[in-house]
Design a protein around this nucleic acid. Structure first.
Lengths: 337, 337
DNA sequence: CGATCCTATCGAAACGGTTCGATATCAATG
DNA sequence: CATTGATATCGAACCGTTTCGATAGGATCG
């Protein structure tokens, strides 16, 4: 592959002149510039970014760590962030955790080896060991969606607690009293906030939460399916189900359908974060939507500020909490008196 | 950030010895190795991959170009390819075309600047200019899903034509004669194959294709929706609709539902490539599924062969055509006599 | 006209590694 | 004991760039 040396030789000038001309970083005569341009075309020269970055001491690569690439939420998040980032001749180097928290540390190390200029990540773990690693990483990090306690990293999220509250309160307003909650892993940050929101809205509405109505289904459609089958087979079944993410909402809907119940006539179902793409599910599921575009925009912006060294290292961590949006579908009905 | 020089100084040995020890590429005494390990930990040394790659003349980065990151098909494709690739201490640098063919050339150039070891891409364009660029790129490329005529690049796809045939024949077997086809852009490779499959199966079944029943909706749910609304409002409406991708199938389903028709009682709907994630749509849409895992596996394998220089440069291009799988749902019904 | 200042160009020293060809030590061999 | 062959270590060249300081030839100025 052609190097800058080939261009210099072909144009009959020195290497430094070529560099000066190509980067527009020094005075070059009109005639020389033309000869260099011709030479570039002739030898098919493409600057080697690895060499440039090495010399400049900074790379144009930004790491992005996704919790689960197969989930459309992360797909849209990535797509939107990419749109913002790649405008600045930067590129994203993306890693997929496939919902496996065990890959998180290894991935971060690998990204650091690549000397990425920064990392945007949706973390899975939330424990002191992980926080310590993040703090010692020495690379700008913007967390998205989930927080890691004990770090001072920029953080962009939507108000998970409020979202769960909105849906729970909505179900309560429809007259439901026996509301089941299908939630994610207990140690995950967002899952905890959502659970808090559910409980708080239940308490607010003067409703009791029966222990067996608080289910942990690890954000998995299959687990949600099994649990809802069990729940709905009991004589003391709920009249409404709130699922904490898109997969579990769909698992729940499938379960009640397979049992012969109709939604919303026999049971109401609402789900957090059932993104637009799946909202075509019939009946359309009532949901709170995260403003993915807003999350992506703020995360990209802050990351670019870090990259340009403009991030006010005032020590203060920045947090942006976006408001979720209640989208009423056809999956919830008022409870007959 | 600590360099190999710091490690050497701290351990009291030469730089080359550190390199030899760390890479296990030369004999190093047990004692020295221990001192070096200690020094690495002490100065928090992380090898600079950019420098390593520059020296070794090859990078551990593989480019991946996605047609549309928000589409779960690409999300799952990426996730699975990442699983295979990232095992070999390689990483993916991913770019999203967001369905905009205009970004394709710029993206490839940028990836080449980064000196990626290879590129896995799902192309959008299929024209001579683009083919010429690909041929002159001088980087190993594996095409996935769509072909580019006039190149000799490895190509992994599923049998789009056969998939469309299977669904069309299935509808015909149910007794449908007035079948409408909602297809993608006319110049895209896969869209053409699917259209061929539809036409061939129609001819095979002795069915005539009315021109107004062959719709071009650019893989967009909205366009499909509008067109199906128009189609179904006509007195000579079809009894079955075949949509060429997941988005359009959902748009079509939404349209017939909004018009007050029931599916499958009033009209049957089938869709190509309605991935598992959306198969929960009620009624579950009959579809042909692409074996994403198989595509990802073969593409990753071939790419790693290229990277290791094992690719038999016999000049012969390799093609892998996977068989799509017919998944019967509840969206199609026999036509009453 | 000599000093001064642009303008255009160049050589050489980095950046952080790898790797090849020394060199030095030491045990085994004939 | 001189030779050989491992074994362990090192110095220096190099990968493809950028960038700093130097040089040289005008044009401008007092």
């Amino acid at each position: 592959m052609a190097t800058i040396r080939d261009v210099a030789r072909h144009a009959g000038v020195s290497i430094s002149t070529v560099s000066l001309a190509l980067n527009g970083t020094g005075p070059v005569s009109e005639e020389t510039r033309a000869r260099i341009d011709a030479a570039v075309a002739a030898v098919r020269y493409t600057p080697n970014l690895m060499a440039q970055n090495l010399k400049r001491g900074q790379s144009k690569l930004i790491g992005m760590v996704l919790g689960d690439a197969a989930n459309p939420f992360f797909g849209r998040l990535f797509g939107t962030i990419d749109k913002h980032i790649s405008g600045h001749e930067h590129m994203l180097i993306v890693a997929n955790l496939a919902s496996d928290p065990g890959r998180e540390l290894r991935t971060l190390t690998l990204l650091k080896r690549h000397r990425v200029a920064g990392i945007i990540m949706t973390p899975l773990r939330n424990d002191p060991e992980f926080a310590a690693h993040l703090n010692e990483l020495d690379v700008p990090v913007v967390l998205v969606d989930q927080d890691v306690d004990g770090t001072a990293l920029d953080f962009v999220t939507s108000d998970h607690r409020r979202g769960a509250e909105m849906l729970t309160a909505y179900l309560a307003r429809l007259g439901h009293r026996r509301i089941a909650y299908v939630g994610g892993q207990r140690n995950m940050w967002a899952a905890e906030r959502r659970l808090e929101g559910f409980r708080s809205a239940m308490a607010e509405g003067g409703l009791a939460v029966e222990p067996e109505f608080e289910i942990v289904a690890d954000y998995s459609a299959d687990l949600a399916y099994d649990n809802v089958i069990r729940l709905m087979s009991s004589p003391s079944r709920p009249t409404a189900i709130l699922a904490a993410n898109n997969y579990m909402a769909i698992g729940a809907l499938q379960a009640v359908t397979d049992l012969g119940f109709r939604c919303p006539d026999d049971v109401s179902i609402a789900g957090i974060d059932v993104v637009a793409w799946s909202s075509i599910v019939m009946p359309r599921i009532t949901t709170v939507e995260q403003p993915i575009d807003e999350l992506a925009r703020v995360a990209s912006l802050w990351m670019m500020e870090h990259v340009r060294g403009e991030a006010g290292r005032g020590g203060e961590r920045r947090c942006h909490v976006a408001e979720p949006r209640l989208v009423i579908g056809h999956s919830c009905a008022p409870l007959p008196k």
